[in-house]
Design a protein around this nucleic acid. Structure first.
Lengths: 223, 223
DNA sequence: ATTTAAAATTACAATTTTGTCACTTAATAA
DNA sequence: TTATTAAGTGACAAAATTGTAATTTTAAAT
């Protein structure tokens, strides 16, 4: 269950929000004591923050800025002032959305859903890259095709990853060499050919023949 | 340079936007012919879409929905109607932001910057994982801290990645072993200790001392 | 303070990865 | 066709990675 942290000093609004979100399947929690807001927010490790701009002792914009220094958690600023300046400051301080009170609760919910969804796709979980015909599992350095698996070495992963990034376009040998070996100018041109051969052999092991096309004089292309 | 695609039928606004964004260092491009909008948008492979809601033959909301079926590109809906219903539909169709004309150009820019920044962390470009104190560059298998770099081996990457996934929580030695060696039941318990030692040494090389805490009897925790 | 077990350290050998060499094959131009 | 050059192949040695063993250090429990 996704956790949403509410920072709001108006008790009525706070409770309403909390129960509304809980009803919609979230684990909503309000922070009551605001003495160490920033610290507490970070401790809570929520999936999303609803942050009121007008807090009793410090302003929400400052809180937002401080949280951003150490966290990428999605933040929605909530305020009663419909001020363009406030919105601009909030966005520049790293807030993801700005909502003015009295807010349309459906719109707020849509914004929450959108941010949470995006953060799931994103996040750190981009572990497996689905390339339709096969899957590149980066943390395990393997490619999986149906039930077949094969381990790739660092160079093989790098080349394949670079090709995936530019899938469908031709990438020049120079670009690949630059990507793999950066400034090591001494690298033999043939070194790439050999590494390419090794990658292709591994791909064939899982039945992925000829997915890397040679474009003579131009480079390679992942089909 | 990041590419922004503008879909807007009012020529004046379109040109203004284009030159404004180009001035701010983006590669802005407007789609003139709107006969195959959805197809063309996908072909362009832009980093962000500015999409007008009132298009001549079809409405922007529909376009947004169609694009979302095959792409996660950030979309900002632009409209002259300040309608809560339109905003709600747009958000539900997968738009990331909703801006009403005449818009505050600074706010629009802030939204663009925010979305692009967030999407860099995500996407297939989740190549570099920003861990605040350091960056884990997965395709190159290195960690970067300030100007220092150090290469990691496959095991080292795996352990670090697993710790990052559970950052702030204790992960048991068993879980790490399971993650690295799966079913290879013959693996010595000490093997993990040694690999952990190696990872820590590499981390120290870039000044990241003591970021992996030992929780005796429980496991390890990335601070 | 002593005991015990978990974790750290160091060293070493087996295995894997990597770059280069020498040579072959294949595509394009003359 | 022939010449030319880009790309592919197989083999080998140097370098890096990895698992294990032997030993030491450290933290908690008695």
């Amino acid at each position: 269950m996704q956790k949403i942290l509410i920072i709001e000093d108006d008790e009525k609004i706070r409770d309403e929000l909390e129960s509304f979100l809980n009803k919609h399947g979230y684990n909503a929690k309000a922070l009551i004591n605001l003495d160490n807001v920033v610290e507490d927010i970070l401790k809570e490790k929520a999936d999303l923050i609803l942050l009121d701009i007008n807090l009793p002792y410090m302003d929400g914009e400052y809180v937002c800025k401080e949280v951003r220094k150490t966290s990428n958690v999605p933040i929605i600023m909530v305020t009663s002032r419909d001020s363009e300046l406030d919105e601009l400051i909030s966005l520049n301080y790293g807030a993801d959305q700005y909502v003015t009170k009295p807010y349309n609760i459906q719109i707020l919910l849509a914004k929450i859903i959108g941010l949470l969804k995006r953060n799931q796709n994103a996040g750190i979980n981009q572990d497996k890259i689905d390339c339709k015909e096969f899957i590149l599992n980066r943390s395990k350095s393997i490619i999986e095709k149906d039930d077949l698996k094969v381990e790739l070495t660092k160079n093989e992963i790098s080349i394949l990853y670079f090709l995936i990034l530019h899938r469908g376009s031709i990438v020049s040998r120079e670009d690949i060499i630059e990507y793999l070996w950066e400034s090591e100018a001494f690298i033999d041109d043939n070194t790439l050919t050999v590494n390419m051969k090794r990658l292709r052999r591994k791909l064939e092991e899982v039945g992925l023949d000829d997915i890397i096309e040679t474009k003579r004089g131009q480079g390679y292309m992942l089909k």
